[in-house]
Computed example of a mutant assay.
Amino acid sequence: MARNLRAEVNLAAIRHNYQLAKSQAKMAKAVAIIKADAYGHGAVQVAKSLSGVADAFGVAAIEEALELREAGIEEPILLLEGFFETDELKLIIQHRLWSAIHSLEQIDRLEAFLDAHPTEGLCLWLKVDSGMHRLGIHPADFNQAWSRLQARSEVAELVVMSHFACADEPERQDTYKQIEAMSRCLEGVDAKVSLSNSAGVMHWPQAHYDWLRPGIMLYGASPFADGHALEASQQPAMTLTTQVIAIREVPAGDAVGYGASFVCDVPMRIGTLAVGYADGYSRHAPAGTPVVVNGQRTRIVGRVSMDMITIDLTHHADVQVGDSVELWGEQLSINEVAKYCNTIPYTLLSGLTRRVKRIYKDQ
């Protein structure tokens, strides 16, 4: 029996979730964020599925953008972190990429490059640090940065962007402060604006502006730890499954797995699954983390090891070797699994390794 660990990706669900994001701000456009190999779903396949639907795509770095161009993706592609080396500007122009600009030093390098290499039709996204303190122009430098870029005839379009630090925690005041900081920057400036990540799209309509940037919500997961009403309309895009590869009867008092950390308090039927942390399944998933077998929930027992985990089949006498087990997806929310693992769905999805076979469906 071949090791049958697979991530089934529903491309129709991703398109649905993209349209759901856009429906929250009907006049806005949306950059579909497909960095990190589309959060583990396969950037090329996701981009092809969204081609003709998405207004633009967003990636972290130029390598990701070039992979999409080589695959025939023609839509605009935004480099969310901008260029790292001046030489990348040649590729940005050649491949018609959009680039973030997040520092005065980048503007210096851009101006010097354009002085030596005249071009036209650049689309730049000027990033402002409205309070996250990761990337972005300081608000005090915004007018200078805006004026310098506006003065360049090579720049055909200039969008202003920022990024929220705490939009997924609606009870906090940080997002209000960031929105206010951006409002002050934008006084007297006629600009297209992009502030909303997935949490912004789902919960902060006052921040929708002209361009949305949905990421995790495209994949049917939620940025909110405590849930959100809009989640009921999302469709899970990935169902991760594996198979039972062994079953054994373990007497009371015996331990299961590394470290003998789980001890059977009664005689138990234990199933072994072909998945482990080398596949990207979290090693921090504790005993009790749910899985679904033959439509019924059960739990992990013992530690997650490199290639295998063990589950409790004591009350599942019908389960046999070869049966499929869902680790997250259509029957089990990845958000729930992430809570058990004390992490977020982003890390689970983007951490899947190449050992996990991706299977694509479009319905």
Rank of each mutant, 00 (worst) to 15 (best):
M132G: 04
M27R: 13
R134A: 11
R69W: 09
K127C: 12
Q150C: 14
L349V: 02
D55T: 01
W146G: 08
A237N: 00
D115W: 07
L240E: 03
P267F: 05
R269T: 02
V263I: 15
P267I: 03
I300H: 02
T314Q: 04
M161D: 09
A54T: 01
R3C: 11
Q363W: 13
T175M: 14
D190F: 09
N197H: 04
C341D: 08
A28D: 09
K127E: 13
A140N: 13
W125D: 03
I216A: 02
M1G: 10
A61K: 14
Y340P: 01
T242I: 04
V53Y: 00
D307H: 15
Q106Y: 11
L5F: 13
A56L: 06
I62P: 07
H133K: 11
G188K: 11
V250W: 07
V325M: 10
R6W: 08
P286V: 08
L80R: 01
I359P: 09
K48W: 00
L104C: 10
D129W: 02
Q243D: 13
L5I: 14
A12C: 02
R355M: 12
H203I: 04
K26D: 07
E105V: 13
I62F: 06
S153Q: 13
A60C: 09
D168E: 14
M308Q: 15
Q234C: 11
E187N: 15
A221G: 04
E169D: 14
C341T: 05
H284R: 10
V337R: 01
T119Y: 12
E8H: 12
D254G: 03
L240Y: 03
K339W: 13
E249L: 11
C264A: 15
K26C: 10
L327D: 07
T86V: 15
Q94W: 06
L313D: 01
Q235C: 03
F84G: 10
A47M: 00
Y18S: 00
P214F: 02
A140Q: 14
R15G: 01
I33W: 01
A47C: 03
L149P: 02
N342M: 13
E180V: 14
A252I: 11
